[in-house]
Design a binder for these strands. Structure first.
Lengths: 164, 164
DNA sequence: ATCATACGTTCTTTTTTGGAACGTGCAACG
DNA sequence: CGTTGCACGTTCCAAAAAAGAACGTATGAT
């Protein structure tokens, strides 16, 4: 399987990975959620090659995650902003941040704190079941083919044996 | 910034991306959560090069996400299983799946359905605030430096301007 | 004129990946 | 005993992607 075939897999992980599954793309998105919008600022903060940055921004625009907005004419200048679709990646980024906070923070503690404006408190993101509201654990979920499944892809037999 | 410098950044996204921020690694983890454990099965399902698969499994073991377990002696054979740390990546994978389900599913619908054993219902993962339990939206979160922050990294000034 | 700014592109070198074959240890078959 | 098959990799070479630095372009400020 190559990059260009990934988005044709009948698997939501594969299709999403085709969009964001790249170290630079994820870091670009992190910066987007922190308010970065301009080419030069991404480049300076990330230390990414200009060539690769141009490529990743182009791909994110094509995927509908970012949009290019002119903020000045004469000379014409653009900036990159998250679309609504892009904002929907927030849970992915928060889940990544939380894993890092819990498992990879140095002894000084986590680098960034998050405050929920609605309740005013510092918080951690928690992934819960949409139906009962209880926190989700891998072992408490059973998975089976949906309408978009294709035979022999993504899930094959009983796929419950990961426990242990 | 190169791969090998990523994990030294004072940023939970960068550190997590240093572990999982790679297309193949994410697909390997997907398969782990679907019950795949053996080299040959990863290779057959993913179509990944054996060389790259060996490399990714080695890195995941080194990162403490997977562990190598002997399931047979004479000949000695190993399989790869998620550790507790690895199981903590479940919210990341579920967030990725959900984004794919919502934004990238074909017209036939989502490829996979998830049932919560605790309540018995088909569900979607929802990311909520640990303090008030309300669903999180990017615009409702304010971010500021924590104890592990380093000057000039990850967040610089007011970082609330991503809206719009 | 010269410099600075913002947003890229071009060029060359280094690193990573794809693809196929080979190596190892052992068991089962004929 | 020789052969086949399996599980788990490693090795080798060609192709693709990334790093690093310089160049291009349009404009406005000094």
């Amino acid at each position: 399987m190559r990059w260009r075939e990934l988005d044709r897999e009948a698997c939501s992980v594969a299709r999403t990975v085709a969009v964001i599954g790249d170290r630079w793309t994820l870091l670009v998105l992190r910066d987007c959620f922190l308010g970065v919008r301009r080419f030069e600022e991404f480049q300076a903060r990330l230390g990414i090659t200009r060539h690769v940055l141009a490529d990743r921004l182009r791909k994110l625009v094509k995927a509908g995650v970012l949009r290019k907005v002119a903020y000045e004419r004469r000379p014409l200048r653009h900036e990159y902003r998250l679309t609504d679709k892009g904002l929907d990646l927030y849970p992915v980024l928060m889940a990544i941040v939380h894993f890092g906070d819990v498992h990879l923070a140095g002894r000084r503690g986590r680098p960034l704190l998050h405050r929920h404006k609605a309740c005013g408190k510092l918080f951690d993101p928690v992934t819960v079941c949409s139906e009962c509201g209880e926190p989700l654990h891998a072992r408490a979920v059973h998975v089976h083919p949906g309408p978009g499944a294709r035979r022999g892809e993504c899930i094959e037999g009983g796929a419950d044996g990961w426990t242990g």
